[in-house]
């Protein structure tokens, strides 16, 4: 009960960066954050699937979020991270440029995505969070793995031209 009330009041988010944009994931979906690890290529898989990694004996697919959102590739560096998330009881890694922070956001600071975005990309975006001048794009994970769905980031990010 208590948790529910808290959840209603505020949301805890893990924020990360891709290109110039800041994204966020509900912390409940995030299992851990790793440094970039050796990835075994998966032939014939969807283009955005980088491959698989070994996480303590468990084999986990890794998605390059840049490729997923059709952003230009970027050299991996010291700051590159793999965010391990859990979707429908399956772990998946997301490669991101940089993990920024873990923060709390009052629920009322999260606005639904703009109409046109919803039309274009159904459920990809859960909402837009605002902290002072920062704009956080809160992602809905389930759609990210759906290879049928083409997601061009420039179409979904409000304000990006």
């Amino acid at each position: 009960m208590k948790q529910d009330q808290e959840a209603a009041a505020e949301v805890q988010l893990v924020t990360f960066r891709l290109e110039q944009e800041e994204f966020a994931l509900d912390i409940n979906q995030v299992r851990e954050v790793l440094r970039m690890a050796p990835v075994t290529l998966l032939p014939q898989s969807a283009h955005f699937i980088e491959g698989v990694i070994n996480l303590r004996g468990e084999i986990i697919p890794v998605i390059d979020l840049r490729k997923r959102f059709e952003l230009p590739p970027k050299e991996r560096d010291e700051q590159t991270r793999i965010i391990i998330v859990e979707i429908e009881e399956q772990k998946v890694g997301l490669i991101v440029d940089l993990v920024t922070e873990v923060l709390r956001l009052p629920s009322e600071a999260i606005k639904p995505p703009p109409e046109r975005v919803v039309n274009v990309q159904n459920d990809l975006i859960r909402g837009i969070g605002k902290i002072e001048k920062r704009l956080l794009i809160i992602l809905n994970l389930t759609k990210i793995l759906d290879a049928e769905e083409k997601i061009a980031l420039r179409e979904v990010i409000p304000g990006v031209e």
């Binding site: 998966l42 014939q44 969807a46 698989v52 004996g57 084999i59 986990i60 697919p61 399956q90 998946v92």
Partner: peptide, 18 residues
């Protein structure tokens, strides 16, 4: 070990091992 069900449709790959 089986691959995650998100990628297990791959033809020609039976699974993986560490």
């Amino acid at each position: 070990k089986s691959l995650s069900r998100f990628v297990n449709e791959l033809r020609g790959i039976a699974g993986a091992t560490v």
